[in-house]
């Protein structure tokens, strides 16, 4: 359960961006969390709501977009979404697959009040 460590890293970036933009307050944060990121979105939200107290983001909403695991076969080029994480092409059975998405742990955007 390293979600609190990840939220601590998130707040380092939030503070930096808030200072850059001279923000008075952060009101919204949007993350992208991949199915294979190793992070549980619900715990991330709990950790965020604990961590945000007494920060610029104390009233901020957290939005989490869950990104499914998406892979592409390098042989037949079929793209597929995999809920079972099995890296075998559904079309041709090849194991040569490239991950297109689903491992990310990304801060997409921040909504701030400036001036």
């Amino acid at each position: 359960m390293h979600e609190l460590s990840i939220v601590a890293s998130l707040f380092e970036i939030l503070e930096e961006k808030a200072e850059e933009q001279k923000a008075k307050r952060i009101v919204g944060v949007k993350l992208q969390v991949g199915a294979l990121s190793g992070v549980v979105p619900e715990f991330l939200e709990t950790a965020f709501n604990i961590y945000k107290k007494e920060t610029l983001a104390d009233k901020a909403r957290l939005e989490i977009e869950k990104v499914p695991l998406k892979i592409q076969c390098q042989k037949c080029h079929t793209e597929m979404v995999k809920d079972d994480f099995v890296f075998i092409c559904e079309n041709c059975g090849s194991r040569e697959l490239e991950t297109l998405g689903g491992t990310e742990l990304l801060l997409e955007k921040i909504e701030m009040e400036v001036s």
Partner: peptide
């Protein structure tokens, strides 16, 4: 109060 949306796209880690 003016609101501003900032696109970041930075990895948390």
């Amino acid at each position: 109060m003016e609101k501003k949306e900032v696109l970041v796209l930075e990895e948390l880690l």
